[in-house]
Design a protein around this nucleic acid. Structure first.
Ligand SMILES: [Zn+2]
Ligand SMILES: [Zn+2]
Ligand SMILES: [Zn+2]
Length: 711
DNA sequence: GAAATTCCTGCCAATATAT
DNA sequence: ATATATTGGCAGGAATTTC
């Protein structure tokens, strides 16, 4: 039967797409993150899946590279700027491509994503019709051919066979809306052909004409940041936040009048600072010849700072000075000095951000690989730090140390290594490790290549291992093979460390709850004695650990190696006067370091929870004004977790936990301990039955496989 | 103000690249 | 194959943030 009224809105599709794009740009309802290079793009799964068979498959978890439905999808080998264009096309059904090279890049990505309209851009060849959606590695990119072409205006043509009411089996592409009518029929943005006619509403960048100021405004917005890599128009520095890019561009434009000889000015300023700093000691030489030029105005300094932020500037030839025969490498941006060139180069990245290290699990990006690694444990919850007294495991070194201080009375200074005035690590010669560092369970990323291009981080790893479920077979290469014992200790020394009772008054007064005997030499022996309260007769659990050579790449022996991992590292002792004082003796008074921490966290577009915070233009010296938002939920969960070792009750703060535990101490006279026995090779273990002063079983971590539940 | 988290840097093993 | 260069993990204190 015929409908009474038929409603149709020719502009509906266009309006819908406009709104979707607005939402994307605001980060609203975004439910997927796409990573291209090191830039993360928030988008809508629906839209992506409707536009690209590859995305459809990947987001359904049907891609080989992505076997499970993903919230985060990485596109190895796709340039961020190119993918930004792809996204813009998907969400706008049109795109202005500025150059033939860009068109080719766009076409290549379009082909791999299976977006028909983009495929045709690639190298002029006929677009491959069938796209199975499988992600293929990027072809070697050096294609110098340059088919001449004016900036391509790519407007998604109507799909053949599509009707105005849609209804194709596959969802329409991002440009599908345009298919409802010919593009020229859509009201707000008219066709490019008609565009040039109305010069009043014409985009100054691409020449496209628009039917309304609003449409033009919207279009212009896409040009501005359009998330197309978010690069500064003046210097090319890339950003993740539009606001930061805009702020930067203002300063960048202002500074650009400075001319080209600013580099020498820069070095002059730098060396000026150097002499000031080094005047205390004896500065012998400063390379990087720079005639002392008159320092310019603050604007110049700003420019200098900005120049230093340019890609590559921070990595340029290092300033070197020699102080007391010691070569120091100076950062040209912040004038910090480093003992090693590699330290300087590593540091330089916090200025240049040439390499970026995005978190696998969230939108954070880091300037150092190590920062990222440390951050990611908050997602995985992996507990690698294991106390050798109680075998409890901890996520961070800090947690371990806090635990050992609180529960075993170990003062950190007693075993701490020396630090250089710069804060660098200088291992104590006889540093005893009273903990054990379990190997990382996360799949190790390949090292970044030398070339400046950032190596894609590879396909996403398998779903994050939950703290309890990783088997020992997942162990990667053992780390930190501090093989000091073999060298010097052949004779075998015995050291005894007596730890205090876990709680005052819990064990017999004055008697150690734990006693560990460490024999140093070829064969390491760790004795663990639980005095007084031991239920097992002699109360002596002994472990023998032998240093072994690593078998690279052998998974099985890796897993086994874990059992063999020495409990400590030994290095020949260097006498320090101190002793039991607690504070590290013999440590030279540290040079006060009034240096700011350089923010290395960045936030991706679409992470709109933080956009409000970004608005602050406080000039705190932070180049990008990054501010860490109010905390990450996962981290909060972690830090709010302070379970009582007696009853297991959790407390948000350690203070409250301690207060609570004092209540236990009154009745702690009857503390009972079981012996935990390990024999190398078979690892027989006595579960902590009825043990007081331990977490409940569920929280007990296996010392060998770090499983959360005791077998 | 204390606790927790992040930043930092010397050192060095692991890895990438050059020869 | 070896030699050299670079990357990243680590300790543990400083700086900063959070409670
Ligand atoms: Zn610097
Ligand atoms: Zn993260
Ligand atoms: Zn412990």
């Amino acid at each position: 039967m015929a409908p009474v009224v038929e409603v149709s809105d020719a502009g509906h599709c266009r309006a819908l797409l406009l709104e979707l794009n607005e939402q994307r740009l605001r980060g609203q309802f975004c439910d997927v993150t796409i990573i291209a290079e090191d830039t993360k793009f928030r988008a809508h799964k629906n839209v992506l899946a409707a536009s690209s068979p590859f995305f459809k498959r990947a987001l359904l978890g049907q891609e080989p590279a992505c076997p499970s439905p993903a919230q985060v999808l990485e596109l190895p080998g796709v340039q961020a700027g190119v993918f930004s264009d792809v996204l813009n096309f998907i969400y706008n059904s049109r795109l202005a491509v500025p150059s033939p090279a860009a068109a080719r890049a766009l076409g290549a990505v379009g082909r791999r994503l299976g977006i028909p309209s983009l495929q045709g851009l690639e190298a002029g060849g006929p677009p491959p019709r069938d796209m199975n959606g499988t992600w293929t590695p990027p072809p070697p990119s050096g294609d110098p051919r340059a088919p001449a072409a004016a900036p391509v205006d790519l407007t998604c043509p109507a799909r053949p066979g599509e009707t105005a009411t849609g209804g194709g089996e596959s969802a329409p592409t991002g440009g599908g809306d345009a298919s409802t009518a010919s593009p020229s029929a859509v009201s707000p943005a008219s066709s490019p052909s008609s565009a040039s006619a109305s010069s009043s509403l014409q985009c100054g960048l691409c020449g496209r004409g628009f039917g309304s100021a609003a449409a033009l405004g919207f279009h212009a917005k896409l040009h501005r940041g359009a998330r197309r890599g978010l690069c500064c128009r003046h210097c090319g520095k890339s950003f993740i936040h539009v606001k930061r890019l805009q702020t930067h561009e203002v300063g960048c434009r202002d500074g650009d009048g400075g001319g080209d000889d600013d580099v020498t000015t820069a070095t002059a300023v730098v060396t000026g600072v150097v002499t000031t700093t080094a005047s205390v000691t004896t500065t012998t030489s400063v390379t990087t010849a720079a005639a002392a030029a008159a320092p310019k105005a603050a604007k110049k300094a700003l420019l200098l700072r900005h120049r230093a932020l340019e890609p590559g500037a921070a990595e340029q030839e290092p300033l070197v000075k020699v102080v007391d025969g010691q070569v120091l490498y100076l950062c040209g941006v912040c004038q910090r000095s480093y003992m090693t060139l590699s330290s300087l180069k590593r540091h330089a990245n916090v200025h240049s951000w040439r390499r970026k290290y995005p978190c696998r699990y969230c939108d954070k990006v880091f300037a150092l690989a190590e920062y990222r690694t440390k951050h990611e444990v908050w997602h995985t919850g992996e507990r690698r730090y294991q106390c050798i007294f109680c075998w409890d495991t901890f996520v961070t070194y800090y947690n371990l140390k806090t635990h050992q201080k609180a529960f075993h009375g170990i003062s950190p200074g007693l075993i701490a290594s020396e630090k250089t005035p710069n804060g660098g690590y200088r291992p104590k010669l006889n540093a005893l490790k009273l903990y054990r560092l379990l190997p990382m369970r996360a799949h190790k990323r390949p090292y970044k290549t030398y070339s400046q291009g950032v190596v894609p981080d590879g396909a996403l790893p398998p779903p994050p291992a939950t703290p309890g479920d990783a088997a020992a077979t997942a162990v990667t290469t053992p780390q930190n093979p501090t093989n000091g014992g073999g060298g010097s200790g052949g004779g075998g020394r015995t050291m005894t460390y007596v730890a205090k009772p876990a709680y005052a008054g819990s064990a017999a007064a004055g008697e150690g709850l734990c006693q560990i005997t460490v024999r140093i030499g070829e064969e390491a022996i760790v004795k663990r004695r639980i005095s007084g309260t031991d239920l097992r007769g002699d109360g002596d659990a002994e472990e023998t650990t032998r240093q072994r050579q690593r078998d690279d790449g052998d998974e099985d022996s890796d897993a086994e190696d874990r059992l063999w991992r020495p409990y400590y590292s030994y290095k020949p002792k260097r006498k320090t006067g101190g002793g039991a004082g607690g504070t590290t003796p013999g440590v030279a008074p540290k040079k006060p370091r009034w240096r700011r921490k350089l923010r290395s966290l960045r936030w991706s577009p679409g992470d709109n929870d933080n956009d409000d915070d970004d608005g602050d233009d406080n000039d705190d010296g932070d180049p990008d004004g990054d501010r860490r938002p109010r905390g990450d939920s996962a981290r909060r969960r972690e830090r709010h977790h302070h379970p009582c070792r007696v009853c297991g009750k959790s407390f948000p703060a350690l203070r409250k936990l301690r207060k609570h535990q004092r209540g236990h101490e009154a009745g702690a006279a009857a503390v009972t301990m079981t012996t935990t026995t390990s024999t190398v090779g078979t690892v027989t273990t006595t579960p902590p039955q009825g043990r007081v002063g331990r977490r409940p079983l569920l929280r007990f971590a296996c010392p060998t496989c770090a499983k959360g539940v005791w077998p």
